[in-house]
Design a protein around this nucleic acid. Structure first.
Lengths: 346, 346
DNA sequence: CCAGTCTTTGACAACGATGTCAAGGAGTGT
DNA sequence: ACACTCCTTGACATCGTTGTCAAAGACTGG
């Protein structure tokens, strides 16, 4: 049983490359060559170096080597996410990690929570730590500041929301058409009074989904009503939809524009025993949506896939490929499960 | 519209502290003093330096400064988690991030997925990047190797599972008593044939929960039956529990020892229309457990709270406090919601 | 007006590693 | 035996920053 956790324990520092060199009786540069697998080291010296490395349990200091190394790559990239503990963000993260891991690159992550100041603070913190690339789910309304914060040439990719004031790769879904699909689905089941429950209007996707909702309705000559914006938590959505349901002429269906909001809407229906009478289609899938009763119809986006695509873009740029910044659209898919197929009352 | 995304764009490097010094007409050391808020700089020079910093958009390179700085703190800590995209892990992560953020410390994270080799690889990668501290959810059966990998004095805290071969802080729950609570709850509702669905037996918590299950049964003179071990995915759990249900004398209740397994068990019941007849208590809560029908009774552990406690331990050690490594137990709580209160058939 | 103190400042080396380059030895062809 | 090349090897400077220390100037008190 060894004790390594105590901060006061033997402060003997880790061995450095110089220590290895001394023990092996070679120059530091030769050790460096062995560590990095560079050619031109005689087998005998290489062997001595490797023995010394094992004996001293030497581990190279990557931050030091990246200081000197050409390009200064740190083999670490950063993810600026909405909220690490939200399933959408964590699937993104996981996809990024999977791609990064295959290349021995580590990932920093941080949660912005729709706070523009925090977005900038995180970007700055990651830039000061020399992240080689960044995946960003932006919360602020303009990302021009990135030019100042990150080193020129740092690959950037925006996910879920397009960059503003900056020309960069983006991986998005077509929120307008996805939302319109959802609303058309409800229209096809006879609904005319379709409520909209939306996230903060500072978020581009929330605005686009609202636009899709309005477009689908106006194509059928229907004027939108029953609208609640700026809901950002399950409980806010539950309260807001509850108020709409409690009016004299409540909606017969609801399009909710984000997964937490959908859950809030369902809670409001449950509290009133209306879950089998008022139809719901949500934007963005969530775990267990298929186990609720009725199972929840959603427009599903695939965050893991978005993360893969974004990660590929980052690493291709890191590999030196270059191209005009491009926006990649990932398909949405309407998944009928029950709640969206409830018919409108006659 | 500025273009910053192209890897081939103006490779003009970021300004360094020397550039600032030159522009401000002072020595590098003076710039360093201003940047770090050290005293003993005349207002006039400080002002010149600050102007130069703004003009050049200078950003300090933290990795370089931590190289020189005493103790070599990098203001980055690492989390070795089971799976970043699993709600338990991401709540842990979020708690760690919240505490770290308040101190301008960044967080690296990686997923182990019960692969001992990956655990070691991640630890090594984080150590080579000079993480100041590590939070670890171990997957391997022995962590003595950490002594070799991490710098002496690096604070370590283990979460969810105790360290083996190493004396270090740990934040755990009492899995045996939590599991026994769950089983006693089922016994109290008249059940005698209570199935056990468990995770990989390589995982300490899975073994402890099984022990709690056995103990509670044997206290009532009941011999355990209907046991399925080594289920690690929802689908494995669904299949295994399905097989138990399809026997001539199926269990009347089920204790499932992990959240994904619980979901698998519920799917198996749903597929057979038994969800209102066979009782279920799961270990570990999960989102929407209260919205299923019947709502799912669970033994809840609070991963966010576990993460807070663990993070506090790490930062207190980083602040120089010292104490004998301790194990902290976080309470579990039985949350009756319906599925665990279904009575046994006569 | 002088010794003594305090404040401000920069020169220099160092953190841990690698890029550059030249020196020295072994091997080649004639 | 000679000029030539190739291969190993290490000295040195350097990446961007900060710790150490000493010098120079500005003050203080007597």
């Amino acid at each position: 049983m060894t004790s390594a956790a105590s901060a006061a324990s033997a402060a003997r520092a880790r061995p450095t490359l110089r220590d290895v060199a001394q023990l092996a009786g070679v120059s530091p540069k030769t050790v460096s060559r062995v560590v990095n697998g560079e050619p031109g080291v005689s087998p005998s010296k290489a062997d001595a170096v490797e023995r010394a490395i094992r004996q001293l349990e030497y581990r190279p200091n990557i931050t030091a080597s990246s200081l000197r190394r050409a390009g200064g790559r740190t083999a670490a990239i950063a993810a600026v996410l909405e909220d690490v503990s939200n399933p959408f963000s964590s699937a993104l993260y996981r996809a990024l990690e999977d791609v990064a891991h295959a290349r021995d690159v580590m990932v920093f992550a941080g949660s912005v929570e729709e706070d523009p100041g925090r977005e900038r603070a995180l970007v700055r913190a990651f830039a000061m730590r020399q992240a080689d690339a960044m995946l960003i789910v932006p919360a602020s309304d303009n990302q021009a500041y990135l030019t100042r914060e990150v080193a020129p040439g740092t690959p950037l990719v925006f996910v879920d929301r397009p960059p503003v004031g900056l020309h960069a790769d983006a991986v998005l879904v077509d929120n307008e058409s996805g939302a319109a699909d959802a609303v058309r689905h409800l229209l096809a089941h006879g609904h005319r009074d379709i409520a909209f429950l939306g996230d903060l209007r500072t978020i581009a996707t929330a605005r686009h989904r609202f636009q899709g909702y309005k477009d689908a309705l106006s194509d059928h000559g229907i004027r939108p009503s029953h609208i609640a914006h700026d809901l950002h938590t399950t409980s806010a959505a539950e309260a807001a939809f509850g108020r709409l349901l409690d009016t004299p002429s409540p909606p017969t269906a609801c399009f909710s524009a984000q997964n937490l909001i959908t859950i809030g809407a369902i809670r409001a229906l449950r509290a009133r025993g209306l879950q089998q009478r008022v139809a719901v289609v949500g934007f963005d899938d969530f775990p267990l949506a298929d186990l609720l009763e009725p199972a929840v119809t959603v427009v599903s986006q695939d965050p893991y896939r978005m993360g893969r695509v974004a990660a590929d873009l980052l690493f291709r740029r890191l590999d030196g490929e270059d191209w005009e910044p491009t926006t990649h659209l990932v398909e949405t898919r309407l998944v009928p499960r029950g709640s969206g197929e409830l018919p409108a009352p006659p």
